[in-house]
Design a protein around this nucleic acid. Structure first.
Lengths: 356, 356
DNA sequence: TGACCGCATGGCAACGTTTCCAGAGTATAT
DNA sequence: ATATACTCTGGAAACGTTGCCATGCGGTCA
């Protein structure tokens, strides 16, 4: 007994040289002269413990600098107050804003965010990432993906925890919540804006069509054009990078019949387009109107100032987490849209009346 | 035996209705007909267990779909194979690239990334964020901050785990590792580029000087100008947003003596500058050269194509994590620089020879 | 032949917390 | 005065894993 105590003391002393071992609940209990359970209750069940005792415990906590060990808590209770986030796709220029929404919503609810990335495109690897997070005892997973997600595969693997998906429609799985920016609506707003200005020959430069966003924007543009009675509208596929906008704009300028307006898949591509037009001496919006998508930082200061579709990415991330937390509380999964708005600036105007 | 099996089956079936309780090591051990410890060894100490037994265990694992509970592992062993990342500052436009570096370096080493954000500026809150992460049993913390970090405060609070800081010099604490893009060098490259082209009147528009980056870039510019014998060089403070570049450019155009070149704190501000110059009809680079900083996506497609300083943000995040992991392995903290490079494009050229 | 050693494996305790149940003390009802 | 209810507190078990020590086994050495 004595030897044991002395031994332990010595070990503790040795350990202290390197790492001052963090105090635990038992240390606090001893310091406050109460039972272990009482400490736990002071921390977790407000109002149950007598104020006087509570005070003693809180004093002891402060004196020892105690902080709860969330790992032990998670092991015993199953509650980790952590959500997992899977980030997919490098084409997501607006990731920081989405993350800000995710992080702030989580933090407000007292939750942690555990990250994993999904570099490759295979849905098998996505499932793996979600599973790895599940091992980490996250209570739910929010997937931020710019490509369609194989909902069926996911569902099968980790039905134990709720899942929400951001920016990926098309999932026929009712147990997975989803939020998306209403890309079709955005494309419609952009197209209608140009139609109202009097344009008829409006061409659309899409992002890489493997991305869900690119397809949804294309669809919105097509439907709106068709609704306006324009059947032969044409589009060209790019890849969301400025270079592709530049290239496609050059090609269109060389074509037989020039359009009077270009609607690009995102603002980066619009930058490329503006650059190509400037190089060729094409006046914007005099000879050509340009409308982008995203309202990236600085788009107001392009030359000319870019008309675009503003998306609330922060709300996107935030909504996704809020829905996830709701599902943890028993709410059922839904599909929500976040509406974008048109920001009309100087790059779009009425088409010049040609003598044709 | 038979009854036991049937019982288990029934329980599993019942549990499946709500939550299919994940199998644990004991389940695997029972299934494989070995001891609990053997399973643990198969997972953690390769080569210790006899190949035949190992096979039996692995089969059982596959059959049951067992996955290790990382929380229990962390509690018992202290090893969580997780690092914490504190993200500070909304002015960090290049956050996604940094995060990509962080995440991929961590993943390659088998580590997880746990995020916390630091919205407000008080260093007390930063300490709080780090402590919260420490509660989560992260093994180390990487701080990504665009403002100076109070190293002393940090050191005092969590000396138990290693810490690295990204993008914040000035910390006089040898136990905290740090990585920074060599902003002074970048500013020197930009300034020397303009000097070599023949410019003498070079003005610098800084970011908000509370940000470390802004100060370092200012210092690099000042030193280079002074080394070139130019003592009266002037700068103006902006805030890293395009709007401030726009405003400062307007002011400079109204001033008595125009500079022949503008070096901006980042590319966003350069966008604002280019916009203002275009609006006033000032030719770039004929009448005014413009050099930015960061090489943001699309900067090549500004009009004109922007000369700027390219920074390897992915390497920044990666290095920060690699250093952190090194410190976990016993290496001591260092301070590393990542060198930027000049990307000369169309927005800079020799000054027009004036008749003055 | 008996002592000894290395190898493969297993039992038991422990990490720090929460949860279940019980017990002590006081106030209220019978 | 005893029973009942209620409030506050504590003891012990448990979460799933790892680390320490012990055990059985076959072989080698004196």
């Amino acid at each position: 007994m004595v030897v044991g105590d002395r031994n332990r003391e010595r070990m503790e002393r040795v350990a202290n040289v390197n790492k001052p071992k963090a105090p635990s609940m038992v240390d606090v209990a001893r310091e406050a002269g109460v039972g272990l359970v009482t400490v736990s209750r002071v921390l977790n069940e407000p109002g149950v413990v007598r104020p006087e005792t509570q005070q003693r415990v809180n004093d002891a906590i402060a004196r020892l600098g105690y902080r709860r060990n969330d790992v032990a808590r998670a092991l015993k209770s199953g509650r980790s107050t952590t959500i997992g986030v899977v980030i997919a796709g490098s084409e997501l220029f607006e990731l920081p804003r989405i993350l800000r929404g995710v992080e702030s919503a989580a933090q407000e609810a007292g939750y942690w965010v555990n990250m994993a990335s999904w570099q490759e495109g295979s849905s098998e690897q996505l499932v793996n990432a979600v599973e790895r997070l599940a091992n980490q005892a996250v209570e739910g997973v929010a997937i931020i993906a710019d490509r369609p997600v194989a909902a069926a595969a996911l569902e099968q693997m980790v039905s134990r925890i709720p899942i929400t998906v951001v920016m990926s429609g098309e999932l026929g799985n009712p147990s997975i919540g989803s939020v998306e920016l209403d890309q079709e609506l955005g494309a419609r707003l952009a197209t209608e804006h140009l139609l109202e200005l009097g344009h008829r020959r409006i061409v659309h430069f899409t992002g890489r069509l493997s991305a869900y966003d690119a397809r949804a924007r294309l669809a919105g543009w097509q439907k709106t054009m068709r609704a306006a009675g324009i059947e032969d509208a044409r589009h060209a596929e790019g890849d969301f990078l400025a270079a592709s906008g530049f290239r496609l704009a050059q090609e269109i300028l060389d074509a037989d019949q020039r359009p009077t307006a270009i609607f690009t898949g995102n603002d980066q591509m619009a930058m490329g387009v503006l650059s190509a037009l400037a190089q060729r001496g094409v006046a914007v919006p005099g000879e050509m109107s340009v409308v982008g998508f995203d309202d990236i930082a600085g788009s107001e200061y392009l030359v000319p100032s870019l008309t675009t579709i503003r998306q609330d990415f922060v709300a996107l991330g935030r909504t996704s987490v809020e829905m996830l937390l709701g599902m943890l509380g028993g709410a059922s999964a839904e599909h929500r849209y976040i509406a974008p708005t048109l920001i009309a600036r100087a790059s779009s105007g009425p088409p010049r009346v040609t003598s044709a």
